[in-house]
């Protein structure tokens, strides 16, 4: 399957040199697969943690209990008013019937307990989600409390703000870790490319002597690194997918947690890994070829 003798772009030159040393291809692709699989596991964990955090952080942070005489219309108005307050991300009027229905659902198998109630004990409320970074401090609480028809302000989850801060810190750390992992992949690619350059140094030296530019000599190595990266990304996606299948097999963890809810395989993972592999291939290729391609003197 050699290319037509007269036509040899960087792609066919890359394929040609890759065929010359299949063993090197095997080593390159398998080490890269391991590295990308680690990257993939990291991404899956980060993705899932992010999802659960978003879920947790998404609920209301404050609940305004309305006075008994407040009409539903007043509740709607209040919610609309509060929505315009800068510290508030979202405010929603929840009447007592809806609240009871929700409570019923949350009780799940125990919902029959509520059947004996003569009347709905829950109040009408306005549920407030604070804007990111806003703490439910004294001042804000007092300000909300002072509004007409507000009987009480309940910080439903006072720890939410701190969780949010922790999540932000964790997010920064995770980003740093992700960048480190990626740099690791880049270095790995550059080492592999360096090996490939070394293996072909006679050929490269000769090309330089007959007038090849650096770019001409570098291009097939970049193409080679990108192709290896794509192959490894495909394999790594499979590995991570298989791992996520094994891990999400129904099994009981302590504290009633269920693993399968913690580990879902993001559909876009293969694409993300492929994108990262292409980027790492180009960066690592440039680094790996780097100054080793000398035009003067002998290699």
């Amino acid at each position: 399957m050699s290319a037509p003798a007269s036509k040899r772009g960087p792609l066919s030159r890359a394929l040609m040199q890759m065929r010359e040393d299949l063993w090197l291809q095997g080593v390159a692709i398998s080490t890269l697969t391991v590295a990308l699989a680690i990257m993939g596991v990291y991404l899956v964990v980060a993705f899932n943690l992010h999802q659960s955090l978003a879920h947790m952080l998404g609920g209301p942070s404050l609940t305004l209990v309305l006075a008994a005489q407040a009409s539903p219309q007043r509740g709607q108005e209040l919610a609309a008013e509060l929505s315009r307050v800068p510290q508030v991300k979202q405010a929603r009027y929840v009447d007592r019937a809806e609240a009871l229905e929700r409570f019923r659902r949350q009780l799940g198998p125990h919902r029959r307990l509520l059947d004996d109630l003569q009347e709905n004990p829950l109040p009408d409320t306005v549920e407030v989600v604070l804007a990111p970074g806003i703490a439910p401090g004294q001042e804000l609480m007092a300000q909300l409390q002072s509004r007409l028809d507000v009987a009480e302000v309940v910080a439903s989850r006072p720890w939410l703000h701190r969780l949010e801060q922790a999540a932000n810190t964790a997010g920064d750390l995770a980003l740093a870790l992700g960048i480190l992992l990626f740099l690791g992949v880049v270095l790995m690619v550059s080492n592999t490319v360096r090996l490939a350059v070394h293996a072909r140094r006679d050929h490269l030296e000769l090309m330089a002597l007959v007038g090849a530019t650096r770019g001409y000599m570098r291009r097939p190595f970049l193409v080679e690194a990108v192709l290896q990266g794509l192959a490894a990304a495909a394999l790594a996606s499979l590995v991570v997918w298989a791992l996520s299948l094994v891990l999400s097999a129904p099994s009981k963890l302590p504290l009633g947690l269920q693993l399968q809810q913690l580990v879902t395989y993001p559909r876009l993972l293969p694409l993300v890994l492929a994108g990262l592999a292409v980027l790492a291939g180009l960066m690592g290729g440039f680094l790996g070829v780097g100054r080793t391609l000398r035009l003067r003197g002998s290699v």
């Binding site: 002597l209 007959v210 090849a212 530019t213 003067r296």
Partner: peptide, 21 residues
Amino acid sequence: PRRLPSLRRRLGVVFQEFRLL
């Protein structure tokens, strides 16, 4: 160094050892 390729394309060199692939 970056100007070397254009110089070398105007030359034909037969090396002491054949230097073939």
